Amino acid sequence: MTRPPFAPVSQADIATVSAQLGRPARDVVGIAGRCVCGAPTVVATAPRLSDGTPFPTFYYLTHPAATAALSFLEATQVMNEYNQLLQDDDDLRARYLRAHQGFLEDRESIGVVPELAGISSGGMPERVKCLHALAAHSLAAGPGVNPIGDLALVRAAWTPTVCECLDYSSADA
């Protein structure tokens, strides 16, 4: 669990994230979650990219196995189930709203982007739109902060406690 302020990001971290994504990593301000082996799993990305683009998805899932597991879960239409839970459960809705508020606080501690005022990611606080973003927030903030991200991580065919990393050491070369 890593929240702002973040430790400095190493060149090895950037190389690993770039290898994970299959493209150059952009505007990484921190490694917000790591695999048990130490490889990045979640990055925190600047709320305004260097080209000036507002970027609301502060916590970004980079780990290929995690991304694949969340993509598979999304394909099962579980988001419909989670949206129904949000409609039916006042406590869950209140906890999801708090997750949204915490996400905004985390991102705004790095930078305030007026175009993103009140906008978090993953559909928070009113719906479930992207399990990748919600799981990334859960991995960064820790269990109990984002209830929908936590549900998705429990259900996904991936866990942060078992390393499924590729050898990214050649990414440093």
Rank of each mutant, 00 (worst) to 15 (best):
L153M: 15
L151W: 12
I148Q: 08
A171Y: 08
P160R: 10
A156V: 04
A152Y: 03
I148C: 10
G122P: 03
D150F: 11
S138N: 13
D172P: 00
A157Q: 15
K129Q: 13
L134G: 03
D172W: 15
D150C: 06
L116A: 13
Y168R: 12
G123I: 07
V128H: 09
S170K: 10
I119D: 00
I148D: 07
A136N: 01
M124Y: 11
L166E: 14
R155K: 15
D172I: 03
I148E: 07
G149T: 03
R155S: 14
T159M: 09
L131D: 02
I148T: 03
G122V: 03
L151T: 01
A141K: 03
S121Q: 09
S169D: 12
V128N: 06
L134H: 03
I119K: 15
G123V: 09
V154M: 12
A140F: 06
V145G: 00
S169F: 07
P160Y: 10
E164G: 14
H132C: 01
C130L: 00
A135E: 00
L139M: 05
D150R: 07
P125S: 05
A156M: 10
R155W: 08
Y168T: 15
P160G: 09
A141P: 03
D167C: 01
V128M: 04
P147A: 13
A117W: 03
L131S: 01
E164V: 08
L116V: 10
E115R: 09
V162S: 05
A171D: 01
L153D: 06
N146Q: 14
W158K: 11
C165I: 06
A133Q: 02
D150A: 13
S169T: 15
